[in-house]
Design a protein around this nucleic acid. Sequence first.
DNA 1: AATATATGCAAAG
DNA 2: TTTGCCTATATTT
Length: 354
Amino acid sequence: MPEGHTVHRLARTFDALFVGEGLRLSSPQGRFAAGAAMLDGRALVRAEAWGKHMFLGFGPRPTTGTGTTTGTTTGTTTSTTTTPDADLAWLRVHLGLYGSWTFAGDGSTRVAHAIGAPRRRVGEQEHALPAASPSTAASSAPPAGETPDGWDVPAPRGQVRVRVLGAHAVADLTGPSACEVVTDDERRAVLARLGPDPIRDDADPERFVARVRRSRTAVGLQLMAQDVVAGVGNIYRAEALFRAGLDPSTPGTDVPAETLRAIWDDLVVLMRDGVATGRIGTTRPEHRGLGHEKGRMDPRRVRQNTDDDPGVVSREESFYVYHRDGLACRVCGATVLVRDAAGRTLFWCPACQV
DNA sequence: AATATATGCAAAG
DNA sequence: TTTGCCTATATTT
């Protein structure tokens, strides 16, 4: 699931669970031991997402000897942080294809149990952390060797690169393609290489429009390029092009600016909906329904959106073309095609997308 | 036990 | 354009 909406969800979750609190960082797996030691004991000041990168900004290491709290635990957005970005130590995390965060806690804040790669067993629910009785736990993570009050901290499962432990919750990271401590300059250098992110309010759509039209590279490849538009992955790429009725192989120079603006506006809606719901869904109600035509999807490909909550569109009904090769197009009935495009699988309808 | 698969990306050829 | 890497899970041998 690590397209942009996933990462924004993660940043929001870290904000809700950990901002303003001194945290314990460790690397149960060992591969991030040095980085974890650098950040251990510091307070999380800010969590930010841009495209598929998440940055956690940590304040200075507390100088006092005992476990006094560095920040507030008011929990909501009001804390006007006085620490400038430039003074923060940043943890940069990129989930890549396999990365995932798993959460547990005392239930004082409801968050998804896991956010990241499609790790759940087929049919398993992504249940939220169970609500528990109000905890009287301390307002910051405990010193080494102690455990938080009021809830049990689970042992790390699998190859946990980094564990973030607060007073009320714990987060374990497995399988990231990037997990490193960077300076503010290094963080800004990463951001400078990213295109506008449709989920962010500060994004400039015209940067996207101009950039695509500057190159003859196929629009289907450009939509996956993070320096063109940040946060779009294989699903949003395929679905946005379908909804725009645009052939993925169209050279960028040939796509009208109006079409690109429409794609941008569509991505804004689709991806922000993904942030809100935790799932990608792009079909309009009149186009849903299981394969009325050429059979159902291969169940082995149903790896996400498997929750059967009432009112939730099933995984099988969520997409127009993604993973639907060989099936009939939901709109026109033509057979959905698939091919490899620069190492990624591209799905499209040859009749609807011209 | 071995293999196939995945919503990603960077480095090498 | 191809290879390598990060990891857990489902399926096949």
